[in-house]
Simulated assay, not measured.
Amino acid sequence: MELRRGKNIAFTIICGVFLLIVRMVVNSSYSFMVPYKLQIILAIFFLIYGLALAFWEIKNDQPLFWGAGRSIFNIGVINSSMIVGASIFFFASNALYGLCAFGVEIALYAFISIFEWK
């Protein structure tokens, strides 16, 4: 595994931990009132999109922050790490689900990052 992919995996872990902590704080304040089924649909969408984006980043040899300022909505950093972190956020309806999603998604992201997809 080359260093750039190690940085992608580390950034995915950082984003996942940060968004998992944010979700736990939001869950404790009861301010996130989205139906459970909608959360799962959003989580699955972001997971599939994030992993597909990871394949694309590896295949096209994109740098870690390839989407900084060039995204569709011009909102800053958009890469597969952020999308996978968003998926973890929506999966975390409670702490156990969030930790399970975090572990599985980081393992999948690391597994995808190990291989050359050319």
Rank of each mutant, 00 (worst) to 15 (best):
C100F: 13
A101D: 03
S80T: 05
V25L: 14
R70D: 06
V17I: 15
A10I: 06
V17K: 04
I14C: 05
S71V: 06
I78L: 13
Y97M: 11
Y36P: 07
S71P: 04
K59H: 13
I48F: 13
I72Y: 09
L19H: 07
N74C: 05
I44P: 12
I88C: 02
V22W: 03
C100H: 06
Y36W: 11
R4N: 02
A95D: 08
A52R: 11
E57F: 04
I21Y: 05
A86H: 12
E116F: 14
L38W: 10
E116R: 13
Q39Y: 02
F111R: 02
E116W: 00
N60C: 12
I88R: 00
F73I: 06
A101H: 02
E2R: 09
T12I: 04
M82C: 13
N8D: 09
I41S: 12
I9P: 00
V84C: 07
N79G: 09
N27H: 12
I75Y: 10
F89L: 04
G50P: 00
A52V: 08
N8V: 01
V104R: 11
G67F: 08
G103Q: 12
I9Y: 00
I78Y: 09
A110H: 00
P35W: 05
F73R: 02
G103K: 14
A52H: 07
S80N: 11
S87A: 15
F55I: 13
K118W: 11
R5P: 00
M24C: 09
N94I: 09
Y109F: 07
L108Q: 04
S80Q: 06
W56H: 12
S31P: 01
I106G: 00
V25T: 12
G76L: 01
I72S: 10
Q62F: 15
F11G: 02
F45D: 09
I21R: 10
I41T: 11
A52N: 05
A101W: 02
A54W: 01
L20H: 01
N27F: 05
F102W: 10
V77I: 15
M82E: 12
N74Q: 15
K59Q: 15
I40P: 05
Q39N: 14
L47V: 03
L64D: 02
P35C: 09
L20P: 01
F90N: 05
F18S: 11
V26W: 14
R70G: 13
P63Y: 13
A43L: 04
F32H: 08
R4A: 03
Y30V: 08
A43H: 01
E116P: 03
V104H: 07
V77L: 14
A95F: 14
L3I: 12
Y36M: 13
S31M: 10
L3M: 12
V25D: 03
L42P: 09
I13D: 01
G98C: 06
A43V: 01
A92C: 06
A95Q: 14
G67W: 04
F90W: 06
F65R: 08
I9V: 13
N79K: 11
D61Y: 10
F32P: 10
I114V: 12
S80L: 02
K59T: 10
Y30M: 15
L38G: 04
L19Q: 04
I48T: 13
F18Q: 05
F18N: 07
Y30D: 15
F89H: 01
S29P: 02
I40K: 05
S28H: 11
G16Q: 03
L20E: 02
G16M: 02
N74R: 15
L96H: 04
I83H: 00
L99G: 15
